Structures are given as structure tokens and as C-alpha cells.
Amino acid sequence: MLRYILKKSQLSIFLVSTTVILLCAYSSSWATNFEIDLNGFRLQQFLSVVEPVLGPSLETIEGEQIIANVYPIDDDAFMVVGHSPMFPNNISMLQLTGKTDKAFPFKGLKLGDGMSKAVNLLGEPDRVQQDTARGVTNFVFEDRNYTLEFDGQDRLHSIQIFTTAELMTEVDDPSNHWNLFKDALVEKNIPELLDMMKPDVEIYKWGEVLAISKPFKKFVADPDKKFISALIGSNFSVFKQIETDEPEMSMRIAENVGVGFVYKFPNGKILDEIVFFPFNGQYRVYEIQFRE
């Protein structure tokens, strides 16, 4: 019990030190150093994918900018999944803390790795923050959306990735998303198509809502058959619609989502529209609406 109380104290402080960053927008051009995956989960996935994998939350910690739930990985490690009150259904922060062999590596690093290995793989941080009260050291990178925490023995103790305004709004090239999407459909390139989906994409088909229903890494390895069929199936799919019709494009502004593009099929027998919004440097599919 004492071990968990200590961890909870560490967690609270680590969250406070980073929540201010969550809503900040960087002034630079699109940052290629952003990371969106941690331990199989992806930022902006639906929160509903978490508990079927990690089990019930041990505790909920509520802050002004973020609400965080703590989930056990094993006796010596836990995962924190946070969401913004503005976006209560989406993961806006992921944190892995402790020591475990059950977690996926992060950029070649595992919990327990030495500080020198982190520097070799990631480069020197922009700031090193010492927390003498807790006996930990934080690495802060100004142009990245993650932070690292090291224990008193300079071993990697915690990794956190978080959503920024830039992650949700900036794109490299706003003009090429439709052609890239079409090419992947024609080639039936499933990994490429799944990477073109926003993590919270929804496909509305005949009264059913299809979504990424498990951690992103697991979904890519074993995607839902109905989801894939809606994209590239031999009948009544996005692929079949674009074989015969070119859509009409217009811009769309959605509250708390931003500026996107909608592709409508006014004469289509299969699709009504496909909507794209920015995420992680490019426009990605946010909604697909089939005709009823």
C-alpha cells in the first residue's frame, strides 16, 4: 500500500508540471518530433478503448486542465490516461510510470534505461529540471510533445506524451490528402489507410457506427473486418464509390475541432460525404457517412 501512495504522490506532481503545456500552441512550423503513441495507445483515441485492456481505474485525479485516471500495468508500474474537460471522450495525455517489461518501448527506450541512453537516442533536452523533494530529474524538450522523468539512480522512471494545439491544427501540405487517400484505397493498402484515419474517426454505415475500438497498435495488427470492408470492400464501400464518382470539395469549420475539408457525393449511391480534419501534420479522415 505504501508503494502505491508514493507513486500517487509522484504522479500528481508530474501532472501539474505538464498540464500547462497541453493547451499551448507552438509558433514554429510543423514539428516532426511529435510522438502520438505510448504503450500501444494513441493520443485522441476514444477513452472507451482503455478499460477493456487495462481494467478499472485505480484512482481519478482531477485538475483544472486535465482529468487523469490511473491504471495498473503490474505491481511496479502504472499507466495514466488523461482527458481534457473540453474533450471528455478523447485521450489527451498518456503517461507510463514505474518499472516493467510489459510495456512497449518508446523511441527505443524502456522504463529503467539509463539517462545516458536517453540522451544518445533523443539528444540533449532543452531543460533539465531537478525536483529535490522527490529525488527525480525531468527532461523537457521545447519542440516536442513529451517529457521524461528519471529517478535518483538516473534510470528512466516515467514517460509522458500530450496533446498540443499544433498537433491538432498544423499540416505540412493541405493540398495532397485526397490524392493520398485515393491512392491507398485503390492499392488497398490497409496500414496506410489506417494511418490516414484520425484516432477518433467514425464511419456511419446503415445505422452502425464503426470506430477504432481497441488500442491503436492492436487495431492495426488486427483491424475490425467491418471497418476495413467499409473502406475497401467489393460492395458498398468507399473504394467502390470513388471508382465511379469524383466528389465536390468544400471547407468545414467545427467547434472545438477546427478547419477541415468535406468531400460530398451529391449523386453517389453509396456515400454521402467524407470529412477530413488535421492531426499530427496532415489532414486525416474524421467521418465517413454512408447513404442510408
Rank of each mutant, 00 (worst) to 15 (best):
Y4K: 05
Y4P: 00
I5Y: 02
K7T: 07
L11R: 03
S12T: 12
L15W: 04
V16Y: 11
T18R: 05
T18K: 04
V20F: 14
L23N: 12
C24L: 15
Y26S: 12
A31H: 08
T32N: 09
F34S: 07
F41V: 01
L47R: 08
V53E: 07
L58M: 06
E59F: 01
I61E: 07
I61M: 07
E62F: 01
Q65K: 10
I66P: 01
I66N: 03
I67T: 15
V70D: 00
D76K: 13
M79H: 00
V80R: 02
H83N: 13
N90S: 11
T97N: 06
A103V: 06
L109K: 02
L111D: 08
D113I: 02
G114M: 12
M115T: 07
S116R: 13
K117W: 05
L121I: 07
L122Y: 07
E124K: 12
P125M: 02
P125W: 01
P125I: 03
D126G: 10
V128E: 14
R134L: 15
G135E: 08
E142F: 05
D143G: 04
Y146L: 01
E149T: 12
Q153E: 15
D154H: 14
L167T: 06
M168V: 10
M168T: 13
T169I: 13
E170F: 11
D172Y: 15
D172H: 14
D172A: 13
D172L: 15
N176K: 10
H177L: 11
F181W: 14
V186T: 09
V186I: 14
P191N: 04
D195V: 01
D195T: 02
M196W: 08
P199Q: 12
E202M: 13
Y204G: 00
I212F: 05
S213Y: 04
F216S: 05
K218M: 14
K218S: 14
V220P: 02
A221S: 09
D222S: 13
F227L: 00
L231A: 00
V238G: 03
F239T: 00
E255F: 10
E255D: 13
V259T: 15
V262L: 10
P266W: 13
P266R: 13
G268P: 01
